[in-house]
Each structure stands twice: as C-alpha cells, then as structure tokens.
C-alpha cells in the first residue's frame, strides 16, 4: 500500500499543527472504523464526493468535522433546507445594496456638512470598503465558493442532509463537482475554479427521507453506509468522548453496563425508532452525573429504564419502556 495515499488516520493523535483559520478549533471525539477511514482516503485520492448514509445520530455529519480537524483543513458547512438552491452554495449577489450605495453616494456628495454620528461613521466606513463601481464587493461566496477560491489549502465541504432539498438540487451540483471544478459568476464576470491540487473534499450526508437521489449523481459518488457501532467500538467512543472533553469519565462498569443495556434496547424489534450514538452519550452522561446520588451499575439495570426521555422519542416506544414491571 502506498503510504502517501493515506492522509486521514481517524484519530486526533495525528492532528495537524498548522491549522487554517476556518478549520474546527476543538478536537472532535470520533472513532471511525478502518473501512470508513479507507473510504475517506479513497475519496481524497480520487477527489470524488463521499456520500454517507445511515441511521440518524450515528455520526454522519461529525465525520466531516473529524477529517477537517485532523488535517487542519478549513471546513465549510452547508446545511440543506427544502428551499436551498444549488447557487446558494456557490455565491450570492446583492444587487439592491449596490443600487442603494450608488444612491447614497450621489446624495452624500451634495450635503455632507454635519458631523457624522457614530452610526453614520460606521456606515461610511463600510461605504469606503464597498465601491459600487466594483461588482465584486457585492458578491459573497457560499460554502462551495469559499472552498473553490481557497488556493493554498484543500478544504472540506459538508453538504448536510442533501435529501431535504428540491428534486433538481443534486443535478445542479453535478456539473460543478466534476471536471473542470469551476463555476461562473455572471454578475461580476468572474470564473471561480478550484486549484487542481486543492480540489475540495465533499462529504454529503443523506437520510433518504424524500426518496432516492438521481442515478447520475449517485454514479459519481463514493457510497458508504454507516452501521451502528458494536459494543467494543461504543466503549472506544465513550473513552474518546470523555478524553477529548477533558471530563471525568464514568466508572468502567457503569459504562459497560450502560452499553449492554443500550444495545439490548436497540435489539428490541418492536421499537419504532432506535436511539443513536449521540443519544447514548447523553444518556450515559445523565446516568453518570445528573443526580447527586452515586452512579452505579444497578441504576442501569433498573426497571423501568432510567431517563427514558433521552432514549425514546415516540409515544409508543416511551410507554412501552416506561411501564413499571408487573411484579
């Protein structure tokens, strides 16, 4: 195996020292599987978008933070809403503000005798910065635009929950996330192209809430399905979590007891909605330090299950586990 192809290691021990200002500042407690590390490195090598699917709360979005933190690269986060358009990710252009500035400049030339108040001063300093003759002053880059104009450093773009967008959205992105990795800005006459050695790493998450993504889009992506972690990896996640947060970790037998109980709950086939990793960590934290009383493994085994409000978010699930046992 060529070692130069391995850039991402998946632990914070390899965190970069020279960090980009837009890179996440706090370490991300993240424990990826070797397969996921391989997927990220392959995506980096081929510079194809990495599409992540999996249950809610299994750490799809956090991966982007972990990658950006470890490599010290800037992270541009683009949460997708139902009204998101592909262009929002590239740039926005404020034509009205430019028109306004033209008007204000014309007025200002006539009567500018009064001493400016504080707010006016602020206004005029901004005016000096924005020149209506320069269209570039009124264009603002979106997450992808910022990543593309980053010439010195590779960046990570997280397109979160792409399935929430309009049906056309992935297709509109396609032409930009492929050769020649560039888009035009007609308002300013600019042509924004990513430097060929610093094409961004695009990480896309999806829940498949609104059906499948279009086939041509899928074709270009690397696809990885995130499985729920097993007991061993959950133990690692707990360790890493408390280590990174610099908090007192729960006792070993409390943690293993909680993991066992949690996995047991998840294996219940009658559960409508299964709780995810983030909910588990919250639950463990509640067991560990919410009450003053000494946290003990007995608490975990208690019936009904303690703190059900952290695990069950549907009425039927909640009622099922919140019933005191018949005995």
């Amino acid at each position: 195996m060529n070692s130069s192809t391995h850039v991402f290691h998946g632990d914070n021990a390899h965190a970069a020292t020279n960090r980009h200002p837009d890179s996440p500042q706090n370490p991300e407690p993240y424990v990826p599987t070797p397969d996921l590390v391989r997927a990220v490195n392959l995506a980096l090598f081929l510079r194809r978008p990495l599409l992540l699917e999996g249950e809610a709360g299994c750490g799809k979005s956090r991966l982007a933070y972990a990658v950006a933190y470890e490599l010290g690269w800037p992270l541009y986060f683009w949460p997708i809403r139902s009204t998101s358009k592909a262009q929002d990710g590239f740039y926005s252009y404020d034509a009205i503000r430019r028109l306004y500035d033209v008007q204000v400049n014309q007025l200002g030339q006539g009567a500018n005798t009064e001493s400016p108040t504080e707010s006016q001063e602020l206004e005029s300093s901004q005016l000096r910065r924005r020149d209506p003759r320069r269209a570039q002053d009124y264009r603002e880059f979106g997450p992808l635009g910022k990543a593309f104009s980053e010439k010195q450093c590779t960046s990570v773009v997280l397109i979160d929950e792409i399935d929430k967008a309009d049906i056309d959205f992935p297709n509109d992105l396609l032409t930009v996330l492929d050769e020649p990795w560039a888009f035009p800005i007609p308002e300013t006459g600019e042509w924004v192209a990513a430097a060929s050695e610093h094409r961004p790493l695009v990480i896309i998450t999806s829940n498949k809430e609104k059906g499948n993504l279009p086939a041509p889009f899928l074709r270009r992506c690397l696809y990885y399905y995130m499985d729920f972690p097993d007991k061993e990896r959950m133990g690692q996640i707990v360790d890493t979590h408390y280590q990174t947060e610099n908090k007192k970790p729960p006792e070993q037998n409390l943690a293993t007891g909680a993991i066992d109980r949690f996995q047991q709950v998840r294996q219940d086939a009658n559960l409508f909605r299964k709780p995810g990793t983030s909910e588990f960590l919250d639950w463990l934290e509640a067991l560990h330090s919410f009450d003053d009383k000494e946290a003990s493994p007995q608490l975990v085994a208690q019936d009904p299950i303690p703190y059900p409000e952290l695990l069950f978010k549907l009425r039927t699930d909640w009622q099922k586990y919140n019933k005191p046992s018949a005995t």
Partner: peptide, 11 residues
C-alpha cells in the same frame, strides 16, 4: 465479507 458489507443482523 467483513462487517460494513454484511449488515449487522441487529438493525
């Protein structure tokens, strides 16, 4: 096949 390809039976 290892774990990520064969889905875990639990879920």
């Amino acid at each position: 096949p290892s774990s990520p390809i064969t889905p875990a039976t639990a879920e």
